[in-house]
């Protein structure tokens, strides 16, 4: 079945950048976008073990009469089929439910705050909760439309990082783009990372897909991020659990996203790898 990307359309120039980014992602990945044009400022997403209410800011509802035509225009320009999402169920009359059987979801860095605040350095709490409960990876778009021609995976050894790495392999396979892996060696030795790769039987893929494994051994983490190509799609796992958390990039998600303006594809703890 074709992969689907869920996109909430905001009918203003900022929203256009985001939609363009989604369209670019879909074209690269052969996915089809499902666009939701909100009619109410709030909606519910029912995940497996959580329900998240998303409160959109009012800019999502601006000029509803042109929203469909604007979105259609952009999608058709991108050569993609146009499909809008119509909520079928409502928890309350002004509170539509949105199912979560998507393969990706595109989010600006924050969806419940004013767009003027949206810059770098802050992932909204709702976006964070979506990442945390979703079975799909979340595409956090760059502030302006930005193409990418390579893939960078941050690998920190946790289960999520392993999932991120697998997702990186998949995207590299589907798009044919080169893949780089970045690891910041903290207190633990490099061998432990290699051991993780070995335990997960990823050695072969690692050799096959990965262009270069960049290892940062010294310096401040943020400073090393300059090494990440600015035209890369950055894939990372979010929220490592327990002990591992200490040496995982997971806890460094905020740092990464606040330092680089690339498109981020974030894999949450509930992500289920689909082959």
């Amino acid at each position: 079945m074709e992969a689907q990307l869920f996109h909430i359309f905001r009918n203003n120039p900022f929203g256009r950048e985001t939609l363009l980014q989604s369209i670019y992602f879909c074209k690269k990945m052969g996915a089809s976008p499902v666009v939701y044009i909100p009619k109410f400022t709030k909606f519910l997403m029912y995940f497996e073990n959580d329900v998240v209410q998303i409160d959109l800011d009012s800019s999502y509802l601006s000029s509803p009469d042109t929203a469909i035509s604007h979105a259609t225009e952009l999608l058709e320009e991108g050569g993609l089929s146009v499909r809008f999402f119509e909520p079928k169920h409502y928890t309350a009359t002004t509170l539509p439910d949105i199912h979560t059987n998507f393969d990706y979801m595109a989010c600006p860095r924050s969806i419940s705050d004013l767009s003027t605040k949206i810059g770098l350095g802050y992932i909204g709490p709702k976006v964070r909760r979506i990442v945390n409960s979703a079975r799909f990876p979340v595409l956090i778009t760059s502030p302006v439309y930005k193409e990418w021609d390579r893939i960078a995976v941050f690998f920190g050894g946790s289960a999520n990082a392993v999932n991120a790495l697998k997702l990186g392999f998949r995207i590299s396979r589907e798009t044919g783009l080169p893949l780089d892996v970045f690891t910041y060696v903290g207190k633990v030795s490099l061998e432990s990372y290699e051991q993780v790769i070995k335990d997960e039987n990823l050695k072969k893929e690692m050799d096959y897909f990965v262009n270069k494994w960049h290892i940062f051994e010294k310096g401040i983490f943020e400073e090393n991020l300059y090494e990440v190509p600015h035209t890369a799609l950055v894939i990372l796992g979010a929220y490592g659990h327990g002990l591992i958390k200490n040496f995982v990039f997971g806890s460094k998600m905020e740092k990464i996203q606040s330092t680089i303006s690339n498109n981020l594809l974030i894999v949450g703890p509930n992500y289920v790898a689909t082959s």
Partner: peptide
């Protein structure tokens, strides 16, 4: 940011469709 109403239909709805998932608020 919740809808008006007394909420009981919402509880019944969630019980029947989403396994009783309700928002913390």
């Amino acid at each position: 940011v919740e809808g008006a109403g007394h909420g009981v239909p919402e509880v019944i709805y969630s019980v029947s469709r989403y396994g009783g998932l309700l928002r913390f608020r």
